[in-house]
Amino acid sequence: MKVIFLGATRGMGRALARELARRGHSLFLLGRSERELEKSARDLELHGAPAPVGYARCDLGQPELFEGALAAAEAALARADTVVVTAGLFATQEELEANAELAAELLQVNFTNTILFCEAARRRLLARGGGTLCVFSSVAGERGRKPVVLYGAAKGGLTRYLEGLDHRYYAQGLRVVTVKPGFVRTSMTIGLKPPPFAGEPDRVAKTVVNAIERGRTVVYAPPIWACIMAVVRRLPRFVMRKVNF
């Protein structure tokens, strides 16, 4: 595969990019800091990605950069066939309630701008006859829950968009992979108390790369979260009002 990757410098993105590199896939990195991108590019080459791993600046907070960044990626990786998006913001419900500006920013980045980026990527993939678009949503979008009301709302919207995209463009060769990570121990979740079944980024990465290679549409990672969310989706409202997850 030839993969354009937004978010490879941190957390699950870093682990996922390394797993792709280990399996010998070509990579082009998009991210906010050139200094960090440069380090991650060298790391991925040493993990087995064909050198050179190129990179360009792109920020989910600045939609005007999307087209340029994707064009640079396509110029470097002739015939890129996969776009992966792991980037996103996280803040706790308490932080978001206390800071309206932050809430607006998070909703903008995780919903509107992520979708705008996917639209740009989708157009380019379809123009070359199809390809894979793998986007990290979250189990937080599955059910309105107390600790993730705002974050979950953005992720829920994103999930729905990806579902529609799959229905609309499947026949034209677009493969959409929606990844729904449960709690994974990364810098995004540092300081939060890990629940039971918390995942490790390296395991999640293996699960996701397998899903991309096999063309699965929805992946829960770690997979146990598929069962957990199946239960959570069915809980009646009076229970959801009582419990704190």
Partner: peptide
């Protein structure tokens, strides 16, 4: 507030509680 500052405010110093 710029985006960068907002992000700094989100995860103050990325430190865990004790």
């Amino acid at each position: 507030m710029t985006t960068e500052e907002l992000r700094q405010a989100t995860s103050p110093q990325w430190c865990s509680p004790p």
